[in-house]
């Protein structure tokens, strides 16, 4: 099997075209693949649809991508934070489209895409603004909203260790959206702290099997 290891961040992300839908892992800065986002900024792809829990923190990573005007639309659960000033400015200027999704529905819509599920009924959001216009159903006396899968062209995620087959382990709460996003994209590109030999990861401990991973780049802190 050919190795999935890329020798540079830029070569790994330069396949991402304009107008792509890109999932970016992370919850705040934990698990955010900073180097891959920097590579995406350098590569220059624009008119992107981004799927992330947040809408950027501070002045780096996703926040910088938004500041530079590369993001046409963002699908996220929690855009407004104390340090989301670049998003706030772009949103108030009408330069970015926002789809707010409850966090669990966001995770499950991504999971559904990766698992080949065409939609699912969720109780979350029933009777709220975020369910307006969506099909509802009462099942065994409880009310649900039909939610659709979110697919992506690319997922950019961060893991702790990988082997050349793309098997991944994560670290603490930096795992967050990585495993589900890896399943939902046509191509998954992973930033890792360390690449180990095939056989070095305990198969019982692998969180993301390599079948979901296309490229790995080692980025040492």
């Amino acid at each position: 099997m050919p190795s999935k290891i890329s020798d540079s961040v830029l070569s790994a992300v330069s396949v991402i075209p304009d107008r792509a839908t890109v999932m970016i892992g992370g919850f705040g800065l934990a698990g955010q693949p900073q180097a891959l986002i920097d590579g995406l900024i350098e590569h220059g792809a624009t008119d992107l649809t981004i799927v992330n829990n947040n809408a950027g923190n501070g002045d780096v990573g996703l926040a910088l991508l938004i500041k530079l005007g590369r993001v046409k639309k963002i699908i996220c659960s929690f855009p407004r934070q104390v340090d989301s000033h670049h998003f706030d400015e772009a949103y108030r200027a009408g330069k970015i489209e926002l789809e707010v999704v409850p966090q669990g529905n966001l995770a499950e819509r991504i999971r559904a895409a990766g698992a080949g599920i065409g939609g699912f009924f969720s109780p979350t959001g029933y009777g709220t603004l975020l369910a307006e216009g969506k099909e509802t159903r009462t099942i065994e006396g409880k009310n649900y909203v039909l939610e659709s899968p979110i697919h992506a062209d690319f997922a950019l995620i961060k893991a702790h260790k990988a082997d050349p087959l793309g098997n991944l382990i994560y670290r603490k709460t930096a795992r967050n959206f990585g495993p589900v996003m890896a399943t939902a994209a046509t191509q998954t590109i992973v930033q890792v702290s360390e690449i180990v030999e095939v056989g070095d990861l305990d198969p019982e401990h692998i969180i993301t099997p390599g079948i979901f991973v296309n490229k790995i780049v080692q980025v040492t802190a």
Partner: peptide, 25 residues
């Protein structure tokens, strides 16, 4: 019924996080 995610003000940026999931879950 619970309201804790959005003031509904015209200039507010809506952000829900996990609140709706926790409320029903």
């Amino acid at each position: 019924d619970l309201a804790n995610w959005h003031t509904g003000a015209p200039d507010a940026i809506p952000a829900v996080g996990g609140a709706m999931d926790l409320a029903v879950g």
